[in-house]
């Protein structure tokens, strides 16, 4: 039998160590979950390959140049919104958030860990999608350098995270699961991911253009196809969603 030194030696670890540990655990969890992988990796890659190879739609310009930014936006949404909402909803339901609250990891630390894990998964997604797209003949033209797309990914992640946490912190876990998947599918169809928004009736266009997924897809599309001017309006829309979502989530989130 192992003898353990149980004499008290309490103390919290330094914050960075706690945050990194939490981020690592969350990231492994996301990359190991089959349903999450379906939403974050498999569907985006299938959409990318399918819509760039098959002449399913009339799109402006080269098909791969049009579809890749949309798929990147879809990937960001799948991780920051769908995956995060579902995972956090069930963590709340299973008392994990409550249990973590009894450890030295603060709520701020937990949120930093989650954010870092999402960033980690997004890097994997972007590498995968860009590799497949390049293989399919994608030749991006960066009109405002690499900072522009990164800025959009960060703003988009913040916007989707806010909405995901808003959902996870207020609805029941099962309701979050259903709603988050539904929103994913609806926004995949509506949000300018692969179907150009100007195919929709004019009245609908005005609304669709205000959606975070449309703002992210359109913004990335401008920046990755050598377009100008800089898509300030889209960035503003994303920042608006980010502020509203995160503030509302912070105000309404129930930890158990």
């Amino acid at each position: 039998m192992t003898t353990l030194d149980l004499t008290p030696a309490p103390g919290a670890a330094p914050l960075p160590r706690m945050v990194l540990a939490q981020a690592g655990a969350e990231m492994r969890g996301m990359l190991r979950n089959g349903e999450q992988l379906l939403l974050t990796m498999i569907i985006p890659v299938l959409v990318l390959v399918g819509f760039s190879l098959a002449p399913l739609l009339e799109v402006p310009g080269e098909r791969i140049a049009y579809v890749t930014p949309g798929v990147l936006a879809l990937a960001i949404m799948s991780t920051a919104f769908t995956g995060q909402a579902i995972a956090t909803g069930f963590e709340r339901r299973y008392g994990v958030l409550k249990r973590l609250g009894a450890t030295p990891l603060s709520r701020t630390g937990l949120m930093l860990g989650k954010t870092l894990a999402i960033a980690g998964v997004e890097i994997v997604q972007v590498v995968l999608i860009v590799a497949v797209a390049l293989g399919l003949g994608w030749r991006p033209e960066l009109s405002h350098g690499p900072v522009g797309p990164v800025l959009f990914v960060v703003a988009g992640t913040a916007a989707f995270s806010g909405l995901g946490l808003l959902m996870a912190g207020t609805l029941r876990a099962e309701a979050t699961l259903a709603a988050a998947n539904l929103v994913y599918l609806v926004l995949l169809g509506l949000g300018g991911v692969v179907f150009p928004v100007d195919l929709f009736p004019a009245a609908m266009q005005g609304v669709v253009e205000l959606l975070p997924i449309t703002a992210l897809a359109d913004g990335l599309r401008v920046l990755l196809t050598g377009g100008s001017p800089f898509p300030y309006q889209e960035l503003l829309i994303l920042c608006g969603w980010a502020v509203a979502g995160l503030v509302l989530a912070a105000l309404t989130f129930r930890w158990e």
Binding site: E91, Y94, G95, A102
Partner: peptide, 9 residues
Amino acid sequence: PQSGGVPPA
């Protein structure tokens, strides 16, 4: 705790 608190996976 009396039960739970660990992520199932």
